[in-house]
Amino acid sequence: MKTEQQLDAMISQLAPALEPQRDLWPELSARLEPRQRRGYGAWLGVAAAAVLTLWFWPQQLPLEPQLTQNGAQAGVNATQAPQAQAEMSLLAVSEQLTRQLNEEQTRQLKALQQIPDGFSDWSKQIAIWNKAQAQIELALAYQPDNQKLIQQLQRLQQQQLSYIAKLVETSELT
């Protein structure tokens, strides 16, 4: 029988690695799921969808006046009031979302390690869009039903999102 010391010596000489008899990689690699990239692209898509949904929703609410016992006019007023209230609250939510979106955009853009050529003045560009949007929002506070203003604001937001998406896309390619 081997002594304890002899056994310890044999243990210390065991190979740290043993080779499997078959190639395990093909089956293994088939089980590796692509990493979920919660990158700028996905985030921008979600943000854009949220903003646009909030904008289009109140404009597409069905305008179907309902008659009540007090007469047609009263019925129309009764349905318009909650609708106007809904539009106002949606406008407030949308403005809040826009502000958060802008803050998040700026934070994430600052986190970009390498700004691609042609985008060096990105912060200035974003500031111009933000300023323009703020002016339209101010006007909307006085004329919340003004469709032209709403469309203008939508266009600006879309332009801004497209610009950032392009910046991120170019950044990821470089």
């Binding site: 740290p16 690695a17 043993l18 080779e19 499997p20 293994l28």
Partner: peptide, 11 residues
């Protein structure tokens, strides 16, 4: 990494 460590993991 797999190539580097597969022997140790298999052992």
């Amino acid at each position: 990494l797999y190539h580097q460590f597969k022997g140790r993991v298999y052992a």
